[in-house]
Structure formats: C-alpha cells, structure tokens
C-alpha cells in the first residue's frame, strides 16, 4: 500500500484514494470537428510511461479533491503532488 501526499490533507494511506489515470489530457474543445481517429486518440491512447508519470488521483475518503501527481512507475516513488492546474508545464496529449 502506497502513501500519497494529498496537497490539502498531507501524507495518507493509498486506501483513501482512487486512481484517475494519466493527467493533463484536455478534452478537445470542438469535438464534433474531430476525425474518428483523433477522437479515438483522446479516448483510448495513453502513454504507458516507464518512469516519471503524470497522473490524477482523487482523495476519495478524504477531502474529495482531485489532484495531480508525478510518480515513477518503476520505483513507485512520488516525486510530487500538486493541485490540478498548478503545474504550469502544460503537457497536453490527445488534442494534438
């Protein structure tokens, strides 16, 4: 069981959280103009990173906030966690 730092509640047990998959996947703004392929890319294509992965977590049995994390998928170490929108380094995926 991992330990995860909620940006609001601090270090907590993984059992309080639920996982939300890859972070920074912006929903395409004009979805109806997209090709099937581009829409499929947004829906299904994920990086499956080996190494530092940006991902979303929900502090489900805590403050119920979604937040972002950078986690190494090899070592399971969290590099950092931060509120959604606070990262600045906008690495978008799917909308391109």
């Amino acid at each position: 069981m991992l330990q995860i730092t909620c940006p609001w509640c601090g270090l907590r047990a993984e059992s309080e959280f639920s996982y939300g998959g890859e972070a920074d996947i912006a929903r395409p703004s004009d979805s109806e103009a997209l090709s099937d392929e581009a829409w499929g890319d947004y829906l299904f294509m994920r990086k499956n990173t080996k190494g530092v992965h940006k991902e979303q977590w929900l502090h489900a049995s805590g403050c119920r906030r979604w937040f972002n994390a950078e986690r190494d998928t090899v070592t399971y170490q969290f590099i950092r966690t931060y509120p959604v929108g606070a990262s600045g380094s906008g690495d978008t995926h799917g909308a391109d």
């Binding site: 509640c9 907590r12 047990a13 059992s15 309080e16 049995s61 805590g62 403050c63």
Partner: peptide, 9 residues
Amino acid sequence: VQSHYFKAG
C-alpha cells in the same frame, strides 16, 4: 480528518 473505518467513510 476524514478517512475510512473499514469500508465506511
């Protein structure tokens, strides 16, 4: 704090 007791929030 908020947490869980067994499976109850």
